[in-house]
């Protein structure tokens, strides 16, 4: 995960771009991955799951579409492995526990694909060694301070600060509680804010309080609508006047 941390430190506010494996189609996904890696500082590749309980409507729709198009966890890892030399940003995999448990030799497969680690929303801190891979930990606004400190200490690559109670893609307001939440997470591991980030204005407002953002639903929306994800990402970089 050292490459992930370095990439974030090199370019604040960093943007971690979430793309769902197999979208827009399993064939065209390789191209999306390469192009997104040129615009983002970190790429999160989602592995679709039939029951994405932490996801809002956009990512639910995307999971259904990807599975319907025939995406499989092994196939997605194979694609990452095939294009790994052309990727310009480090890659982490994001998925739910069950599809990851079904992959034989997950650490070996991730290493072969050049993937740095995983983000697994339904894998709690207490079971962090279950998969045998480095994990980015998520910290929620309602996480008590002592638990937040333990999550930060256990987190590899970056700390994923969930900015809203709710599912992915929901609205995010930058409140005093939110900035307090972000500040308590600061330490040697960079902090990225995620859940509901979709405008350059939001990125600029969050930038002083963290090391960057995760952009997920907004990018996936672009993919579902047949748009250009690279353009969506460019549009999120704060211009100097906005910052």
């Amino acid at each position: 995960m050292r490459r992930v941390t370095e990439a974030i430190r090199a370019n604040p506010p960093a943007i971690a771009a979430y793309v769902l494996g197999g979208l827009p189609t399993p064939e065209r996904f390789a191209d999306v991955l390469v192009r997104v890696s040129r615009e983002a500082d970190v790429v999160e590749v989602g592995i679709p799951f039939s029951d994405p309980m932490a996801d809002g409507v956009t990512l639910q729709e995307a999971n259904v579409a990807a599975l319907g198009a025939g995406a499989t966890p092994a196939g997605i890892l194979r694609t990452i492995r095939q294009v790994r030399d052309r990727l310009e940003a480090p890659v982490v995999v994001m998925s739910y526990l069950n599809p990851l448990l079904a992959l034989p030799n997950l650490p070996g497969q991730l290493a072969a694909a050049g993937v740095e680690g995983c983000i697994v929303p339904d894998l709690p801190l207490e079971d962090a060694d279950l998969l045998g891979v480095p994990l980015v930990q998520l910290v929620a606004p309602n996480t008590p301070d002592d638990r937040a400190a333990r999550l930060v200490a256990a987190s590899r690559g970056f700390v994923y600060a969930v900015t809203a109670c709710g599912t992915t893609g929901g609205a995010v307001g930058i409140t005093p509680e939110m900035t307090r939440h972000l500040r308590r997470l600061r330490g040697p591991t960079p902090v990225l804010a995620g859940f509901g980030i979709r405008t350059a204005g939001q990125v600029a407002t969050l930038a002083p309080h963290c090391d960057g953002v995760v952009v997920g639903s907004a990018l996936v929306r672009t993919l579902l609508d047949g748009g250009d994800p690279a353009a969506t990402l460019r549009g999120l970089r704060p211009t100097r006047s906005a910052a």
Binding site: M53, P124, V139, N142, C165
Partner: peptide, 12 residues
Amino acid sequence: GGRFVPEILVPP
């Protein structure tokens, strides 16, 4: 068994 949930659900 156990408790495999997003972090938001741990406190409740």
